[in-house]
Write a protein that binds this DNA or RNA. Structure first.
Length: 803
RNA sequence: GCAGGCGUGGCGGAAUUGGCAGACGCGCUAGACUUAGGAUCUAGUGGGCAGACCCCGUGAGAGUUCGACUCUCUCCGCCUGCACCA
């Protein structure tokens, strides 16, 4: 048998699959469907990374298995192609980003095709294609119509050297990623999307989906729901009030002062009554200067100044309490003001100790001279008037009812989640399809005029003012108001990269539709995505954003269900051989093209699946790749060992059924490494047997096919097994036949292994006992001892307890 | 700091309704074939030991059990998430 020529074989099958459109998804909506999805890549100039094929192969395995199981499978691929690297490269080279994008996409597509993925390439989408982003803009307009898009003053990251607004991901340790200059904050009017309106549903509906637990946990943390009450405090001798959000209304009697954030508007409003304005102004200035980076540093020493001239009234006991300003209270969460209960909140406790403020115990059970007592399960209310003697939970109910009755408070739920800053002052993104008219305000571009395309320009340099480069293109900016026909200007901000990826999986269902983002029939049939695999780094941004858009589209009747993805899993990273993150600067980058050229696509696929636990990071190993190549060479040589036979031979029957079971189950649960190990074990057994019959080989090839599709098709063809492998059915196993008739079990004496015996699985204890006692090593261990007890677990162990 | 998870050979990793620890692969050792071998094949490979005896061994220590990688407690280390969110 000739050596396996993987180059020729892989090329041959890739051409056949393409020519015969083997993996083209059928539009026959009567068949059972399966929608397998992987995150579409950003087609960078670097080309494919060895990290990409890991998740792609994993779901390719699932997709190929599903086809063999008779499903109509949608397994698509596309390009998330708007983005900064392309734009920056365009600025440097003066080449249009669309040209660069096309070049990069062609490279990526070719690389992916060389790996033999079973994508339906006829459904490819590209977020930068006007026919695609027309619908991105359309969704934005729907959000705008429903009041979920609004404009607001928001701080952005600004690099004074590059004179450019930076996305958060371009800011590294508070510095500009490109020039390392300290990033400043600039306030700009930004488009925002009201994702907070969906916070509750984004949490609750996690119950409807099958996501790995760490994804759910991360989303819940990110949304950060907390229940409590808004409580109104009067400011003495004024008409003003301060509303605070608290999760511990039960401790209201222990509120001995209030703290407001430096940005709190009451400071401006009551300026005339405040007697230490300069001191406060100085503190505000100090807080303002702290960059986002410094502010996010963990637990610093608390700082603050009192607001002199103002006193608040504690609504439960009428006590006058001081008001302080401190930057540990954030304007962006709750109301920007808190009631401080130093006895039962550690932050307030630290603050009170530092500034000598009174600490009152209202929940007995701890020692508040040492630290705040924050327990809510054991404590009993004290010093709290009508709450005394209650446990914390009952006190909470009672005080909220009391506050509501008096009009001093209401139950309230708060979220850490903020609205989504949707503007970018950049060129290479979807234009926001709105025009601003002096008379009519913000007016949507009419649907029939979509898409709003990017103007062709000579260069993409940002402006000095932090405006989008589009602002300079006057002939594009200046337009007429669709409503009144008067002069109007286009919005020059573009959308963030997260826009196009928030709905791309919908487009795959019906990618060439020019009447709708996809037809209703296609969406009804294909949704939800049955299995979506992607990186953990997308859990709180992309995944949450796309769930939000999907819920909105569900609300306006565009999609059939409230959740886009039925199941979400995540893969680990592939590290360099030195166990560090792969990067050019570390010099440990492995190029998949090189691996394919030297070992072949099947080997790369096999290796990436065998490399280790799919969900964990693993270092690359060139030696490991060779081992996988060796395995495939051994598979190839099976052709020299084939003998006729339409049924599994008795000596391999149990092994065959065991392997079918193991591989079938492991492919479903991300345990590709053990599935492949099982196939390797079977191959070793076959080699020891010296031959493999046709029935055994057919099953073996089908099981291996999803991971190594080229070599298995080739062998199938050469042995004339009939048709193509991809037209066969997934093998089934018979549970009863997975059990070997005789097994070797261990014999223990006092729990220590002394020997092994071979027994029939259904042997009674007596038969096993006889064999166990006949064992030489066992006899030695029993010598001179008295048997106290014997434990026999059929098929597992025979344990003899002696004295 | 809080929450969750994980610690198994030289390496990646198997095995948990408690039942022969180290599957599978890499690496390594010896041998075969060979002009050669970084190809291929065969055998071996947790440690100690000359050894088919025996002893030790799943981060450390204790406990439950006939029996513990698996269950319980304490400690150590690593990873992930959250981190002034009231």
């Amino acid at each position: 048998m000739a050596r396996y020529n993987f180059r020729a074989v892989e090329k041959k099958w890739q051409e056949i699959w393409e020519e015969k459109q083997i993996f083209k998804t059928s539009n026959d909506f009567s068949k059972p469907k399966y929608y397998a999805l992987v995150e579409f890549p950003y087609p960078s100039g670097e080309g494919l990374h060895v990290g990409h094929p890991r998740p792609y192969t994993a779901l390719d395995v699932v997709a190929r298995k599903r086809r063999l199981e008779g499903y109509n499978v949608l397994f698509p691929m596309g390009w998330d192609a708007f983005g900064l690297p392309t734009e920056n490269y365009a600025i440097q080279t003066k080449i249009h980003p669309a040209v660069i994008t096309e070049r990069n996409i062609n490279r990526f597509r070719e690389q992916l095709k060389s790996l033999g993925f079973s994508f339906d390439w006829s459904r490819e989408v590209n977020t930068t294609d006007p026919a695609y982003f027309k619908w991105t803009q359309w969704i934005f307009l729907k959000l705008f119509e429903h009041g979920l898009a609004y404009k607001k003053e928001m701080p952005i990251n600004w690099c004074p050297r590059c004179k450019i607004g930076l996305a958060n991901e371009e800011v590294v340790d508070g510095k500009c990623e490109r020039c390392s200059h300290q990033v400043e904050t600039r306030v700009k009017n930004q488009w925002m999307l009201k994702i907070t309106a969906y916070a509750e549903r984004l949490i609750n509906d996690l119950e409807l989906v099958d996501y790995i637990e760490r994804v759910k946990v991360q989303q819940r943390n990110w949304i950060g729901r907390s229940e409590g009450a808004d409580v109104i405090f009067k400011i003495k001798d004024t008409e003003e009030t301060l509303t605070v959000f608290t999760t511990r209304p039960d401790t209201l009697f222990g509120a001995t002062y209030m703290v407001i954030s430096p940005e709190h508007p009451v400071l401006e409003k009551l300026k005339d009554r405040i007697t230490n304005v300069p001191e406060i102004a100085a503190y505000q200035e100090q807080a303002r200067k702290k960059s986002e980076f410094e502010r996010s540093q963990l637990v610093r020493e608390k700082t603050g100044v009192p607001v002199e001239g103002l006193k608040a009234i504690n609504p439960v006991n009428g006590m006058e309490i001081p008001i302080w300003v401190s930057d540990y209270v954030l304007m962006t969460y709750g109301t920007g003001a808190i009631m401080a209960v130093p006895g039962h909140d550690q932050r307030d406790w630290e603050f009170a100790v530092k500034f000598g403020l009174p600490i009152v115990e209202v929940v007995a059970g701890g020692d508040i001279t040492k630290e705040a007592y924050t327990d809510i399960d054991e404590g009993v209310m004290v010093n709290s008037g009508f709450l005394d003697g209650l446990d914390v939970k009952s006190a909470q109910k009672k005080i909220i009812a009391w506050l509501q009755e008096k009009g001093l408070g209401v139950p309230k739920v708060n979220y850490k989640l903020r609205d989504w800053v949707f503007s970018r002052q950049r060129y290479w993104g979807e234009p926001i399809p709105l025009v601003h008219c002096e008379k009519c305000g913000w007016v949507p571009v009419p649907e029939e005029e979509l898409p709003v395309r990017l103007p062709q320009v000579a260069n993409y340099e940002p402006t000095d003012t932090g405006e989008s480069p589009l602002a300079k293109i006057r002939h594009w900016v200046e337009t007429t108001c669709p409503k009144c026909g008067g002069y109007a200007e286009r919005e020059t901000d573009t959308m963030p990269q997260w826009a196009g990826s928030s709905w791309y999986f919908l487009r795959y269902c019906d990618p060439h539709n020019d009447q709708a983002l996809a037809s209703k029939e296609a969406l009804d049939y294909w949704l939800p995505v049955d299995w979506y695999n992607g990186g953990m780094e997308h859990t709180t941004l992309h995944l949450l954003y796309s769930r939000f858009w999907h819920k909105f589209l569900y609300d306006i009747g565009v999609v059939p269900g409230p959740e886009p993805y039925a199941k979400r899993t995540s893969h680990g990273m592939i590290l360099g051989e030195n166990n560090e993150k792969m990067s050019k600067s570390r010099g440990n980058v492995i190029n998949p093209d090189d691996v394919v050229a030297e070992y072949g696509a099947d080997t790369l696929r096999l290796y990436e699946m065998f490399i280790g636990d799919f969900e964990k990071s693993v270092p690359w190993s060139t030696e490991g790749v060779r081992g996988c190549k060796r395995f495939l060479d051994r598979v190839w040589k099976l052709m020299d060992m084939v003998i006729p036979g339409e049924a599994y031979r008795p000596e391999l029957e149990a092994k065959m059924h065991q392997t079918i079971k193991k591989v079938s189950q492991d492919y479903e649960s991300l345990k590709f490494n053990t599935a492949i190990a099982a196939l390797m074990t079977l191959l070793n057994d076959v080699y020891h047997t010296g031959s493999i019959n046709e029935a055994e080989l057919k099953t073996f090839l089908i099981l291996l096919n999803p991971v190594a599709p080229h070599i298995t098709e080739e062998i199938w063809e050469r042995l004339k097994f009939g048709g193509m492998l991809n037209e066969q059915s997934w093998p089934t196993w018979d549970e009863a036949k997975t059990v070997e008739k005789t097994v070797e079990i261990g014999v223990q004496v006092n729990g220590k292994l002394r020997g092994t015996i071979e027994v029939n699985v259904d042997d009674p204890q007596e038969a096993a006992r006889e064999k166990a006692l006949a064992n030489e090593a066992v006899q030695r261990a029993l010598d001179g001892k008295t048997i106290v007890k014997e434990i026999y677990v059929p098929g597992r162990i025979y344990n003899i307890v002696v004295k």
